[in-house]
Amino acid sequence: MNRYFDVNHTQLFTFYSPAHLSALSVFVLCLILLYVNRQRLHKSHYRKYGRFILAAVLVLCEVTLNIWYITQGVFRLQDTLPLELCSISLYLCVFMLLFNNRFLFQIVYFTGIGGALQAILTPALTFDFPHYRFLEFFIAHFAIMLAVLYMVWVEQYRPTFKSVGLAMAFLNVLLVVVGSINYAVGGNYMFLMKKPDTASMLDLLGPYPWYLLSLEAVAFVLFILLYLPFIFVARAQLSRNKLPLSE
C-alpha cells in the first residue's frame, strides 16, 4: 500500500505513455457522456446534484492532496500552497458549482479550461500510475474542465466577449498577487520565476522573463479561441431564425 503514496516512489511519469493516454481516453469518454446527456440533465429536477457531485470531487482532491503533503513531510510554503492557476481555478469551480454563480463562470470558463487542458497535455508531474499523485492530478484537472462544461452544457451558461477581458484582468491581478508571494516565500507558483523542470509549452515561449510576456499573448489568443464556438453558435441560431417559413 505504501508504494501508492510514498513520496520516494521511483516509477517516474512519462509523457504519452500508456498510462497517460489511458487517462486522457477516460476524460474524453466522460466528455462524450456529459455532452450526450446534457439535455436530459438540463430538464431533470436533480441537475443541481450533478454540480454538488463535481464540487465534492474537487474538494476531496484538494483535501486529500494536503493530507498527503503533511503525512509525507513535504508541505512547504515554497511549493505546496494552492497558488497554481489550476489550484485557484479549482477553488473558483467549487464556489461556482455550489452557488450556481454566473460571475465566477465568466472567469473560470477561460482559466479553468485553458489551464487544466495545458496541464493534462503536458503534466508537471513526477509520479506515474498507480501512484496517488497521478490519480489525484488527473482527476482534479478533469473535474475542473467537466465542472465548467457542466455549466455550459447542462446549466446553459454562456460567456460573453466581455468575459475575455474579465478573465484577462483577473489573470493579471493574479500574476501580481502570486508574484509577490513568490518573492516573499521563495516559490515559483504559476512558473513566474522560472520554467518547470519538465517539458511544457513554456519551452516554446523564450527565456525568462520574456516568456511571461509571450504567455500573456498566448493566454489572450487561447481565451479568444475558447470564445469562438459561442460566436459560431449564435450566428447559426440567428441565421435559422431569419429563414423564411416554407409554404
Rank of each mutant, 00 (worst) to 15 (best):
Y211W: 07
I107P: 01
Q237D: 10
A184S: 08
T122C: 00
T126A: 12
I224E: 12
L83Y: 06
S17W: 05
A124M: 08
I120T: 00
P123V: 07
Q72D: 14
V176N: 01
A55L: 05
L205N: 04
P159F: 08
Y183E: 13
F223E: 08
L171I: 05
F15H: 14
L245N: 10
G186N: 03
F137E: 02
L213S: 09
L85W: 11
L149E: 07
A167N: 06
Q39Y: 11
P196G: 09
L77T: 13
R102I: 02
L166N: 05
T198W: 04
V221L: 14
M168G: 01
T14G: 12
E216M: 13
R76N: 14
N101E: 08
F13V: 11
F27W: 08
F5H: 00
I120L: 00
L146D: 06
A169P: 00
P244T: 02
I113V: 15
L34E: 12
F129I: 09
A234T: 12
A124K: 03
T71C: 10
W210L: 15
I67K: 07
L24Q: 01
M151K: 09
F170P: 04
L121T: 09
P123N: 04
A199V: 12
M201E: 05
H45S: 13
C30Y: 08
M145R: 00
R38F: 02
M145V: 03
L212P: 03
F220T: 12
C30H: 07
P130I: 08
L212Q: 13
L54Q: 03
Y4Q: 05
L125C: 10
A236E: 13
I107M: 05
L243C: 04
L60F: 15
Q118R: 08
L215C: 07
F5S: 03
W68V: 09
L205T: 09
K242L: 10
L81A: 14
N37S: 11
L243A: 12
V26L: 15
C30W: 08
S22V: 03
Y208T: 06
A167D: 04
D197N: 13
L175T: 14
L243S: 10
E62R: 13
H45Y: 09
A169V: 12
L135F: 14
H45V: 09
F75Q: 14
A167L: 01
R102G: 02
L33D: 09
G179N: 05
S87T: 06
F137H: 08
L212H: 02
R47D: 05
C61Q: 09
L104V: 01
Y91H: 02
V7S: 07
L149D: 04
F75N: 10
L85K: 01
Y4F: 14
M151F: 06
N182R: 02
V57W: 01
L12K: 14
N241S: 11
Y4P: 04
H131Y: 06
S239F: 09
C61M: 15
L21M: 15
L121C: 04
W210Q: 14
F191D: 13
Y150T: 10
F129D: 06
L228E: 06
S239M: 10
